[in-house]
Nucleic acid binder design. Structure first.
Lengths: 228, 228
DNA sequence: CCGCTGCATTCTGTATGCAGCATTTTTCGT
DNA sequence: ACGAAAAATGCTGCATACAGAATGCAGCGG
């Protein structure tokens, strides 16, 4: 029972215009998650008939979702042979991290410039919760908060394209990081770097924040390289 | 007669595997060009029926192409109301240029590291031709070579994601730059900056190249701001 | 025994049909 | 005459049907 109706798409409680989600849009999210979680492995073909039946939808919206993901870079379109889940080489991951580093350095500088005290406090709170997860060993929640913090800092830049591109790269890397289980000492180092980040942000020290973010992402490569 | 068959897709003469292009893929390129050239103005709705008839294709591949362009950020999907050509505000353009600046600075540094003499010579040749176009006043060809040089430098970084993202941002900005006709003095400054860029690349001086590229793209905002 | 050719099956690519929503126009009530 | 409700129209969204390409297999020839 993997029907699309089992998708957690709550009925939009709360005020405001009711959400009117199109099926192809739902499928984009759905397929993305399946790829990130590894249920659709790299190199695997996306069989329209089978996949559509499995999800309980016809091929048309499914194909549209696949085209969307192709533009996102998660799947590759092979003419007359359908779509396959893109496989990222070690170099690809390294290159993405290089770009991500540059972008987050930029975002950090902008964030220092534009962040309100409330913004900073919000991120500090997330950080504290993340440290808690670190201490209790809750890797999944730690991982989520970690990503959320990075996303939040980039969000503070107020630069929409920057936010979108960072999100895209994070998505592509999610699957790798999802696997990559770093050792305790590296984990500790990562937490320490995060602590520095927050401190720099609170001090609105943009050079220091950029430096720490850069270092953090350089180290990220070391942390995930094991999971080619 | 605006049929899709009028698209310049020659019959792939010459050896090698014959090109097998899918219709939706052709449409992506086609629609992208139409948006860049302004034949599809920002805010304009992409009417599936009408547009499909105009291009001589059915709605299905057209819809797939639209989804692809939506992921690229050129069109916006409005539930139950189709797709509209995305309109970029001044801030959007400024933000995109900010990101582009950061990316090209990075690319410049990498290019200095990896470029062979032949690569540099190729770019120098493009630059010389561009200067010719400047002197003869051939704006269109100048514009194309200008973009090609930037793309080529980014290509020398050897970083595929970087290349893709830069290409995406360039595409979004193309329409704006397509309009933006700078005055003679600014044009001269732009050419001068390009001269510096090539010199820095030939000297493999990555800091200088990054600095010039950064300056060049900061000025780019001044050059296009007139064409909101 | 190995390789090639032709056929059958399966899947992709495209077109069309149908239902639901949005918008506009018309009509009715005040 | 003005406003509101209701019908009508046009479009999107999804499903299905059909055509063409790719793959696998069987049969045939070397």
């Amino acid at each position: 029972m993997d029907d699309i109706s089992s998708l957690g798409q709550p009925g939009d409680s709360g005020p405001g215009p009711i959400r009117r989600t199109a099926l192809h849009d739902t499928l984009v999210t759905r397929l993305r998650d399946m790829i990130i979680e590894g249920r659709l492995e790299p190199g695997m073909r996306l069989h329209e008939g089978q996949l559509g039946e499995q999800l309980g939808v016809s091929r048309t919206p499914l194909r549209e979702a696949i085209k969307y993901l192709a533009s996102e870079g998660l799947v590759e379109l092979v003419p007359s042979r359908g779509a396959v889940v893109k496989r990222f080489s070690g170099k690809d991951v390294q290159d993405m991290l290089t770009v991500l580093r540059s972008l987050e350095e930029l975002a950090g500088r902008l964030a220092c410039q534009f962040a309100t005290d409330a913004d900073v406090a919000r991120i500090r709170a997330m950080h504290d919760r993340m440290v808690e997860c670190y201490q209790t060993g809750d890797r999944l929640e730690y991982y989520k908060l970690n990503q959320a913090i990075h996303t939040a800092i980039v969000g503070l830049s107020g630069n929409t394209p920057l936010v979108e591109i960072q999100a895209m790269l994070q998505t592509r890397l999610k699957r790798i990081r999802f696997i990559g289980h770093e050792g305790p000492e590296k984990w500790a180092a990562a937490v320490s770097e995060h602590e520095e980040m927050i401190a720099a942000l609170e001090a609105r020290d943009k050079d220091r924040l950029a430096e720490v973010l850069g270092r953090h992402l350089s180290n990220a490569w070391e942390r995930v390289r094991g999971a080619l």
